[in-house]
Amino acid sequence: MESVARTAALVLYLWSVFMQSSRISALGVNELLYFRIISPEEIGYIFSAAPAKDFGGTFKSFYDEIFLVPADPADGCSDMKNQDVIQGQVILVERGGCSFVQKARHVEEAGGKAVLIADNAEDNDSQYLDMVADGSTAKPSIPALFLLGRDGMMIRRSLQRQALPWAVISIPVNVSALASFPFNQPPWTLW
């Protein structure tokens, strides 16, 4: 039993080294991307998100520890007021108020590395939306992902409750490398 645990730990370590040293290839159509919240521990789960259909970039690096910063304003429809903490981080934005493309552009202009757009239907724990371009010519180049509404709400509530300015996440996470370990998925979301 101990040797199985050592082998599993070695496989996980080697995968981590590989991911850090290689480029992440683009996802196929209808594939989900996964990220893990490292801190705060109360929401230390693996979450899934759906990449935008026809705009935004792909992750070219693995971020072992990067901040997930809630946008200010929350809908991301105007210039970011918290640019000082957005620079180089992943930004959590709420759906509504303007197009997905506009939100991603505002985050990119503020220096964000990627944007997670959480559904504004806070009871949505299973339905991913197709984020499509809005017809504008200026498309963002950062990764843009759709996050279930319940996941976004739970993340924001946890940060507010603990008066934290951000969560620490790992993105993207290869869940197939975790096959021998139990998924630590959010208890409110069915996969």
Rank of each mutant, 00 (worst) to 15 (best):
E2A: 11
V4W: 14
A5K: 15
A5P: 01
T7D: 14
L10E: 14
L10K: 10
V11T: 15
V11Y: 15
L14A: 12
L14S: 09
W15A: 15
W15V: 13
S16T: 13
S16M: 08
R23K: 12
I24H: 08
A26H: 11
A26M: 11
L27P: 05
L27R: 13
E31S: 14
L33I: 14
L33F: 06
I38W: 07
E41R: 11
I43W: 08
I46N: 07
F47W: 09
S48G: 10
A49V: 05
A50M: 11
P51H: 03
P51K: 03
K53Y: 05
K53Q: 08
D54R: 05
F55M: 09
F55V: 09
F55D: 04
G56K: 10
T58A: 10
K60Y: 15
S61F: 10
D64Y: 12
F67H: 13
L68T: 06
V69D: 01
G76C: 00
G76Y: 00
S78N: 04
M80G: 00
M80Q: 05
K81H: 11
K81Y: 14
N82H: 06
D84W: 02
I86T: 07
Q87N: 14
V93R: 01
V93T: 03
E94D: 04
E94Y: 01
E94H: 02
R95Y: 08
G96Y: 00
G96V: 01
G97A: 01
Q102M: 11
A104P: 02
A104Y: 01
R105V: 12
H106A: 01
V107T: 02
A110M: 01
L116M: 11
I117G: 02
A118C: 11
D119M: 06
N120M: 10
A121H: 08
A121L: 07
A121I: 08
N124A: 07
N124K: 06
Q127I: 09
Y128M: 05
L129Y: 06
M131A: 05
V132L: 10
A133R: 13
D134T: 15
D134F: 09
S136G: 14
S136K: 12
S136V: 13
K139C: 03
P140N: 05
I142E: 02
I142T: 07
A144I: 03
L145N: 05
L145E: 03
F146K: 07
L147C: 04
L147M: 08
L147H: 04
L148C: 07
G149F: 01
G149V: 02
G152R: 00
G152L: 00
M153L: 12
M154H: 05
I155F: 01
I155S: 02
R157G: 04
R157E: 12
S158V: 09
A163I: 07
P165D: 04
A167C: 07
V168A: 02
S170T: 03
I171F: 00
I171D: 00
P172E: 04
V173Q: 10
V173S: 07
V173W: 05
V173C: 08
V173A: 10
N174I: 04
S180M: 15
S180G: 14
F183K: 12
N184R: 15
N184M: 13
W188M: 08
T189Q: 06
L190D: 07
W191D: 12
